[in-house]
Write a protein that binds this DNA or RNA. Structure first.
Lengths: 127, 127
DNA sequence: CTAATAACAGTAACAATTACTATTTTTGTT
DNA sequence: AACAAAAATAGTAATTGTTACTGTTATTAG
């Protein structure tokens, strides 16, 4: 019994944008992209919808270099961030799922999300 | 050949404070604590030293609820944050070390740090 | 068609962090 | 002990990412 949600073109555009790109955009980057189609969309609208999508599990959120980034790919994976070029790479591995189960047991509580960020130098910057 | 560092009482106080508390303070919380001893310390000084300590590996940094938090305990462990009460718990486990090695191989690069944050409800808030 | 209200745009406010500049401390050298 | 060079600082201003607010618009049920 999800809360009743009204349709909105802005939210549709945000979801569509997030699911049709392979990078890890910030709220502002999504805002910039969507303004091409809806020049009057408000940045607050982008923030609000992204927050809601994350709470519903339709998007992943993580904080990187002082700003929130979003990921429309909700398959279990984690992120590698290059300290040199700033690029964010996806690493697909079941480890996040195992951590969730293990942590729930360790703290005797409930786990809602696992955010794993590995930092270092990517292949091309390490040379 | 580490870069030459000059002594400073402020830095010593920051290190001492960080290593003699068991919570996960923000820069401002460390600032508040140290002002009791050095009422004229600058917030910028706290930020700069914490950044340097993190780069040297003397402290761990992670971002939680929109602000940076620091941890003087550099033993391998990760954090569980309660969505209800906001408490940050330490979870000691070798998983972060394994992730570092695995990721370095997966991305064919170098790993400098692993930041793992699990969110959910802690034991007392889950009741 | 209409009323109720969710969602919005636009702007202002906010909080965390960084940048800047003149002054103070530290350290090596005489 | 005195001095010079430069690292570190204090205090403040500026910047940035995010949230809050208010009047307007769009969606939905009846």
């Amino acid at each position: 019994m999800a809360a009743p949600r009204r349709f909105s073109r802005q939210r549709e555009a945000i979801i569509h944008n997030l699911q049709n790109r392979c990078d890890h955009p910030s709220a502002d980057e999504i805002y910039t992209a969507i303004r091409q189609q809806y020049p009057h969309i408000s940045l607050g609208t982008v923030y609000r919808n992204l927050r809601e999508l994350e709470q519903e599990g339709q998007a992943l959120k993580f904080t990187c270099d002082g700003k929130e980034r979003f990921d429309g790919n909700t398959q279990p994976h984690y992120h590698f961030v290059c300290d040199i070029c700033g690029e964010v790479y996806d690493v697909f591995d079941a480890v996040t799922g195992r951590i969730a189960a293990q942590t729930a047991q360790a703290v005797q509580g409930e786990v809602h999300s696992v955010q794993l960020i590995v930092r270092g130098r990517c292949k091309s910057c390490a040379k």
